Computed example of a mutant assay.
Amino acid sequence: MKLAGLAMAAPATAAQILQQAAAEAMEFTQQAESTSLGSGTLDHLDLAVTEFNHAYSLKPPKAVFDAVMDYRRKVNGLLKAKHTHQQERELLAFAGWLSELLAWLAHDLGDARTGLAFATDAFVHGQQAGHGQLCAWAMDASASINLYEQRPAKARSAALRGLTEAPADHPLTVRLHAQAARAAAADGDTEGFTSAFHSAQDAHRLLPPRSPRRFGMDVMPLADYALTSYPATSFIWLGQAEQARRHAEHALATYEAAPETSRAPSREAIARIDLAIAHAQLGDPDDAVSLGHQALGSARVVDSVRHRAGDLTSFLTRRYPRQSAVEGLREHLAALDAAARPALPAAPSGA
């Protein structure tokens, strides 16, 4: 090493060695700060991710998917370029947030494989960025996608994995407990549903007065929806129609009372379908058909809405096989299914 003989060197030589070492230290610092990122790149990405999250419930999912995928590729390129360690952590987080949104959009477009791939990508990038909350959001997406793919055990596992990363006093914790409850109900596990749903209620009571925000959006409604809409679906699966009706009515009232900026048309449509199925189970097919048409008239009829509407029409057809109104609802759904094709094209892998 250059300083190994410093103590034995002549004064002039020692001074030269120290001067050279100081110059090298400056080079080390410049290397650590060296980056090819423009000064406003990270701010631009933050604004873009914010706008994409706001657009999610307002614009057609295919258009949003294409725009978000374009940015995900750009971030992949930035991660391969020169940047500082701190910038890398921020880029990894932005990559994860974009992939989390792509997971939901792929799910909305009916491509579970792509959705789960992006949920996994979001989780991995969250881990690399040291961002536990991002990991938890990724597992929330994975839980929903697996549930709609009729894989309740995997959905439950994803929810529990998310709970290991989510802050205890965050609305996401409420949602993940409710996800686990819904998965248990889908598996016919009444005790598991009851236990997980009580955990969701307990977590909701512990939330702070001021709700956290995600890219400028209040996330408290997501916890409120999970405590009303998820049990409505769960009680349908558990064959408890009256309980399902009560929770579905509460869920629908919660959605309708939300500020316009917080409305979620697809979730509201699913609440109407839950209420419709409850009415059908209770012997009221006319209201069930009417609610079904209202749901399919939503501004955002994504794959999950059509999937649940299929559950409704299948039940109505079995229970009330000779009613023309039921056939009309089936035709309404068939037309929407046809309009939704072609399916989402496969996305190339990112970083």
Rank of each mutant, 00 (worst) to 15 (best):
A200N: 02
D202N: 12
A203L: 12
H204R: 14
H204D: 15
H204G: 05
L206A: 15
L206I: 00
L207C: 09
L207F: 04
P208Q: 11
P209G: 08
P212H: 09
R213W: 04
R213M: 15
R213I: 08
R214F: 12
R214N: 11
F215V: 08
F215Y: 11
F215L: 11
F215C: 12
M217V: 13
D218C: 14
M220T: 13
L222C: 11
D224C: 09
Y225N: 11
A226N: 07
A226Q: 05
L227W: 06
T228R: 13
Y230K: 07
P231N: 11
A232D: 04
A232Y: 04
A232H: 03
T233R: 11
T233M: 11
F235L: 13
F235G: 00
F235A: 15
F235T: 04
G239Y: 10
Q240C: 05
E242W: 02
A244Q: 08
R246T: 14
R246P: 04
H247G: 03
H247R: 10
A248I: 00
E249D: 08
A251L: 05
A253L: 13
A253S: 15
A253E: 12
T254R: 14
T254G: 01
Y255I: 01
Y255Q: 13
A257N: 06
A257G: 14
A257E: 08
A258G: 15
P259N: 10
E260C: 02
E260T: 14
T261D: 15
T261G: 04
P265K: 03
P265C: 09
P265M: 04
S266I: 00
S266M: 06
S266V: 03
E268N: 07
E268V: 03
E268P: 02
A269F: 01
A271W: 01
A271D: 04
A271T: 00
R272E: 13
I273H: 01
I273T: 09
D274F: 02
L275S: 02
A276Q: 07
A276H: 07
I277K: 09
I277F: 00
I277Q: 15
H279F: 07
Q281M: 14
Q281P: 00
Q281A: 10
Q281N: 11
D284S: 12
D287L: 05
D287V: 00
A288V: 09
A288D: 05
V289N: 03
V289D: 14
S290M: 08
S290A: 12
L291F: 05
L291P: 01
